[in-house]
Design a binder for these strands. Sequence first.
DNA 1: ACAATTCATAAGTAGTCGCTTATATATTAA
DNA 2: TTAATATATAAGCGACTACTTATGAATTGT
Lengths: 109, 109
Amino acid sequence: MQPVVAAQDRVFHALADRSRRAIFESLLRGEAAVKEITARFEISQPAVSQHLATLKEAGLVQARREGRSVYYRVEPRGMQPLFDWIAHYRAFWPLHVGRLERLLEGMDE
Amino acid sequence: MQPVVAAQDRVFHALADRSRRAIFESLLRGEAAVKEITARFEISQPAVSQHLATLKEAGLVQARREGRSVYYRVEPRGMQPLFDWIAHYRAFWPLHVGRLERLLEGMDE
DNA sequence: ACAATTCATAAGTAGTCGCTTATATATTAA
DNA sequence: TTAATATATAAGCGACTACTTATGAATTGT
């Protein structure tokens, strides 16, 4: 079990939970404090903190304390293990890589 | 919970398990019967069948019976929910999209 | 028909997960 | 200092997971 695999494991595991994906996606809108994040969902604050801890350990988010609040933000580099996994086997789904490439092209606009 | 989300859920969940990812990756080498797949790992045949069932329900593999053997193969379109999820939020990790694009370029060689 | 082979399913189990409530740990304000 | 606020951690609980062994079902060969 190389560290690469372990990193992929943490990222896949973190994104496998729907609540955690929803929290992560909501952070793509921008930095937010735990209290704000909690208000967006119908789970308790400890549950949110636990999800954030999992996302943080996976490297998908970072935290910044400011006074009593702790602001979480997306760490884009955390997606790298996922990209690496896809890229490593990219030769096997060429059709979809082409489709993905086209999607990515729209980014420059 | 739209069907899109459910599909993403199944794909992320299926790929979250390391054994399942290993089985899936081994199938990228080509079609293989359950017995052959079982020989590649150190888990029992029922465990392999259960993993294959999960991968199949996620749409990541397909099965084909031939005599007593059942051959499993990768279904490339099954990755679509994963690509869709990445593409949907692609605007948020531009740096890595660039890196991913470069990786994809190597495909044409 | 019978035995052998291949795979799927059933049942059980230890461990993990995601949530809850309760409490501890900062940090700030009065 | 004390109280209020914001977050993290602890403990517990039901549900789910990933595995096992045992057995059922489908197919083939004798």
